[in-house]
Simulated scan of single mutants.
Amino acid sequence: MASVDPTHSLSRYEDMPVVPLRYWGRWVSAALLGVVVLGFAVSMVLNPRFRWDVVADYMFSPQILSGLYMTVLLTVSAIAIGIVLGVILALMRLTGNPVLTAMASGYLWLFRGTPLLVQLIFWYNLSALYPQITLGFPIGPNLGTFSANQYITVFVAALLGLGLNESAYMAEIVRSGLNAVNKGQNEAAEALGMTRARVIRRIILPQAMRIIIPPTGNQLIGMLKTTSLVSVIAMQELLYSAQLIYTANFQTIPLLIVASIWYLVLTTILSIGQHFLEKHFARGDRRTTAKPAK
């Protein structure tokens, strides 16, 4: 029986032309989507009721830019409070101390179990419950007393509502990231004589950041849009500023478009920043840095 030369068979297959697959379904769906998008864009441009001239007039108006600044300030301040308190709450839940764990769990139960809108209204009306707030101990010296109406302003109420609510969600994000790190690394670091605080700061947190950053970026983008809820307590952020204008000139749709465009601009900037931050913390991950084999 004649033997078959494997090299001859291989060369025969190599000489055959390579025909790429034709994904007709993709082309058809892309064409249909393009037609829908083009039709929607044309209708937006040609429909005079959109009043693009009004949109252009108010895009950079002082009142809109003032609301935009307040939205950015609220977003950054609230997410900073959320991250700091979230890390503290996550560490409290991971200490193994039943008292600290119960306190952190109760905090999460309260702030995640009630709507954010209710919390904002509650903080705004805090003076109805406590006209005078005293800092101190139930039995012992007082550190000071101040008026709730004077110090719990609209901005402070909005910041308390957004920041404290955000910390409850950030606590679970941080806790899941810390738990994802291999326990053996923690044990090895402690065996070398490193303190618990240093192990968390130098070993655990840097590795957990790859898991914490993506959902934190999503929370930041979500916080940017959630700031629109503070309009119910008359906080002049971006949406409320637009509302004040269209209640005076009755141009509701153009002013909502102005607010939406600014939200899209800020969301795009934050998304780009999140991408580069994730890329930075993924440098030590072999799955993301390994080059494909040639």
Rank of each mutant, 00 (worst) to 15 (best):
I81P: 00
D15E: 15
F40T: 08
M1E: 04
R51A: 09
V258K: 05
R201M: 14
T71P: 04
T101F: 04
F250R: 05
Y240E: 03
I245C: 01
S127L: 02
S127C: 06
P6H: 10
S271F: 10
I245M: 01
V72T: 04
W52R: 03
V199W: 01
T289H: 06
L126P: 00
S11P: 00
V174N: 00
L256W: 02
P131N: 12
A259Q: 05
L74M: 15
T247R: 15
G82I: 07
T145W: 05
I203P: 01
V99L: 15
V258N: 08
D57H: 12
K291M: 10
A168C: 14
L32Y: 03
W52H: 04
A41C: 15
P141E: 12
G106H: 06
L244W: 04
Y246W: 15
H8N: 11
Y69R: 14
S11V: 07
A56C: 04
E190D: 03
T227A: 04
A242P: 07
P20N: 07
G217R: 02
I64T: 09
V84N: 07
A30G: 04
S241G: 13
R196N: 07
V45Y: 01
L255M: 14
Y58A: 01
Y58W: 14
I233M: 12
M44H: 00
G82F: 03
S29Y: 08
G34E: 03
G113S: 08
L229S: 01
L94R: 13
R210A: 15
V181T: 06
P98F: 09
V55K: 01
I233R: 09
A259R: 02
L270F: 11
K279P: 03
Q119L: 13
S3H: 07
F137M: 15
S105F: 06
L32W: 07
A168L: 05
D15M: 15
L85K: 03
R112E: 06
I269M: 12
L129I: 12
M223N: 00
A102E: 10
